[in-house]
Design a protein around this nucleic acid. Sequence first.
DNA 1: AATACGGGGCA
DNA 2: TGCCCAGTATT
Length: 304
Amino acid sequence: MIRTPLLAWFAAHARDLPWRHTRDPYRILVSEIMLQQTQVDRVIPKYLAFLTIFPSLESLAAAPTSEVIRLWAGLGYNRRAVNLQRAARAVRDLHDGEFPRTVAALQALPGIGPYTAGAVACFAFEQDVAFMDTNIRRVLRRALVGPDDILPAPSDRELLALGAARIPPGQGWAWNQALMELGALICAAAAPACRRCPISAGCAAYAAQIAAPSEAIALGAPDARPTRRVAERRETPYLGSRRWHRGKIIDALREHTALPLARLGPLLKPDYADTDTEWLRDLVDSLARDGLAIREDDEVRLPS
DNA sequence: AATACGGGGCA
DNA sequence: TGCCCAGTATT
């Protein structure tokens, strides 16, 4: 068994996370869906609570969708809750209750994309597959390509190929966990802790930083360090946005079995008027298309 | 290739 | 405020 510096570091410094104690594909899937665009610390309590209520794929598949959506409160991206249950039902109905093991079959399930399919194949079935989340992408890029601002930016396909070739055979599980852990704890997006990094000796970004300690810009080196994200797009304001209102509607539906539009409206905006009905109906229908709500005439409820 | 999709934590 | 976070589906 090969002991690379990264694997040694992981063995010594890995956080004790609940989903690292299991290989149950159902539990791994729940963790991976919850972790999509959501920080570890915020997921842990939700993950434990979810598995207490839905300890098995069968229990989740058989549950009312409304209960799954209610349990999802506080996690955001509520479609994930619906898709997670759809995936559970697909495994039950289309795969005879047996989790598919291949990346392709996993990715065919609702809400499971390239990342999650690879993660389940690796973390549940211990396959040596390469995949990328935001952490792995940043680590591979810095280590194998160079500083964040180098151009052209490597494509995901290139990065994936580079990363795949470096997986120590038979240790994909630990390797991929270690890459993610390094990205989260050491090779952070801002202020990476290179002093504590176990792979800085072989890191392209670190080498570049040592060679040119940030005075290239001050000296005005032409085209030396072209900056990516020069014209960064502003993040759209969240408060009062369509997303915000959708979230508020789901919150209201979590509290009530059913709600007429005329009662839902004032819960969203104090000055709700009849002229807002069309706006509200459009919002509700968008939720209905996502499987997050059901509207019958002027009454709204969570899906059963 | 762009957008929509939640929400909370933090500088 | 603006940025970030174990992404996916749709256009």
